[in-house]
Nucleic acid binder design. Sequence first.
DNA 1: GCCAACGTTGGC
DNA 2: GCCAACGTTGGC
Length: 145
Amino acid sequence: MHYWLFKSEPYKWSWEMQKAKGEAGEEWDGVRNYQARNYMRQMQLGDLGFFYHSNKGLEVVGIVEVCALAHPDSTTDDPRWDCVDIKAVCDMPQPVTLKAVKANPALGDMSLVTSMRLSVQPVKADEWMEVCRMGGLNGQTLKAF
DNA sequence: GCCAACGTTGGC
DNA sequence: GCCAACGTTGGC
């Protein structure tokens, strides 16, 4: 099990839109960055990720689950670009802002802080737990997934 | 809307 | 294979 973070500009693809897709999930398409693509190729079914609103919002608003392994991105004929599918799992009871992440010394090494421009990022297990805690998700809730 | 950071492209 | 030009991302 690995943890990830997916960035989206809410006026292009918002958390509300993701949730509307329900169990079926949706392609995380449109990624045109090798590093981000490589992370998606590493993802396994059942891996969890944060859903982050960039540009507007600047906060982790929910949790998603990988529900399809990397496959060709349907929005391009270019064979270089793959993507996974993700589905919404739950809301962050209390969205975790970028400001709060930056203010937390335990999260100083998070890619969100150090690799600001990367749109798909790995999240370490301890970072995952800490952000969940800040967001109002306790261990009990997390085990329900 | 600005601009810094950074990834990509293409000429040499 | 270097590096300048250019485009994009994303915080502010």
